[in-house]
């Protein structure tokens, strides 16, 4: 069936299809953006666009970048939420115990990296598939958090005992730009440099495409996979710090809320990119797409429950359209 259409199709639409396939994600973003701009007068205001970035973008972008590192070596990290939670727990508990914010923040990053290191041992050391290894970590992490909090009680910071630096991290701004957004931007830039400019990134992507070739070229593939998972834990920990600094509380297992959206954004970015490889710009655009859809549907005044249906339908439509055009183009 596909053969026939491609044989009879004139060459110009074919070129058009090629353009669509190569820029699927950007086109999807523009379309969704245009639709919401027309549907709601408040969508295209500075205040709202800023709200998208702060509320719908920052945290998910960081977690999705963590996920992208795991996906770049051909894996997946179901425990990114666990790293978010562990970082948040260490951060809030130490600040509550009166430790300096910098020390607490470092401990938080360390806790996230430790989750990543645990995954690295399972995946690179024992050789368990990343999906199962990180699934195990997710379950164990859930139990550990409940044990640490007497069955799942949140850890609150008393409003009077919040250090200035802690508040600044969550709600502060430099030159009018919210600190969390700046941290997200730094993470995006850093991750882009690591994945595209550093040798590590090239090896990581090569492992994701063809592990055996990398191994035969005498490169320590396992060590690179291990580093990718530790980086994933570390980056997710940044989101954990921002999350707890924003809400000034640690709620056990709250990080798991990011998991499915992070997977969605990363794989949307991967599959809709030109080469079909994990890449930071793709992930970021994927997060933006999810954020714009969530914000736009909110503005349309649709019932809250219908918003979830709408989000699902829109993502589904984007995926279906891009996969179908891609198939047409390659046929």
């Amino acid at each position: 069936m596909t053969l026939q259409t491609s044989a009879t199709a004139p060459s110009i639409p074919r070129a058009v299809i090629g353009v669509i396939v190569n820029n699927a994600l950007v086109l999807a973003l523009i379309t969704v953006f245009a639709i919401f701009s027309l549907a709601s007068p408040t969508f295209l205001t500075i205040a709202n666009l800023q709200s998208i970035l702060v509320n719908n973008f920052t945290l998910l972008a960081i977690v999705a970048i963590a996920m992208t590192f795991a996906v770049s070596v051909g894996g997946i990290d179901l425990s990114v939420g666990t790293a978010v939670d562990f970082a948040s727990f260490a951060f809030v508990s130490l600040v509550l115990a009166g430790q300096p914010v910098a020390v607490a923040a470092l401990a938080g990053l360390g806790a996230g990296a430790a989750v990543g290191a645990f995954n690295a041992v399972l995946i690179s050391g024992i050789g368990i598939s990343p999906f199962l290894a990180t699934l195990g970590t997710l379950f164990i992490g859930r139990s550990i958090q409940q044990l640490l909090t007497n069955g799942g009680n949140p850890v609150y910071l008393p409003p009077s005992g919040i250090p200035e630096a802690f508040r600044f991290l969550g709600r502060g701004a430099i030159a009018g730009i919210p600190v969390p957004l700046i941290l997200a931007a730094i993470t995006i830039l850093g991750a882009t440099v690591i994945l595209t400019r550093a040798r590590f990134g090239r090896v990581a992507l090569a492992i994701g495409i063809q592990t055996s070739v990398v191994r035969y070229s005498g490169i320590a593939a396992r060590a690179h996979v291990a580093v990718a998972f530790i980086l994933a834990g570390l980056i997710a920990a940044v989101a954990g710090l921002i999350l707890s600094a924003t809400v000034t509380v640690y709620i056990p297992s709250s990080g798991s809320a990011f998991l499915l959206n992070a997977i969605g954004a990363t794989f949307i970015g991967t599959t809709l990119s030109r080469l079909g490889r994990p890449n930071i710009p793709g992930t970021v655009l994927g997060v933006l797409l999810l954020g714009i859809v969530a914000n736009g549907l909110l503005l349309t005044g649709l019932n809250f429950y219908w918003q979830q249906v709408g989000t699902g339908l829109l993502i589904f439509a984007v995926l279906a359209l891009s996969f179908i055009t891609r198939r047409k183009a390659s046929a």
Partner: peptide, 27 residues
Amino acid sequence: AAVVGAGIVPLLATLAVMNIVAGLELV
């Protein structure tokens, strides 16, 4: 239809469907 017809990766296809279905349940 999403996996076989449109050719979407099962992980993504069923993730999107999961969101739609969970939303419909809430509605």
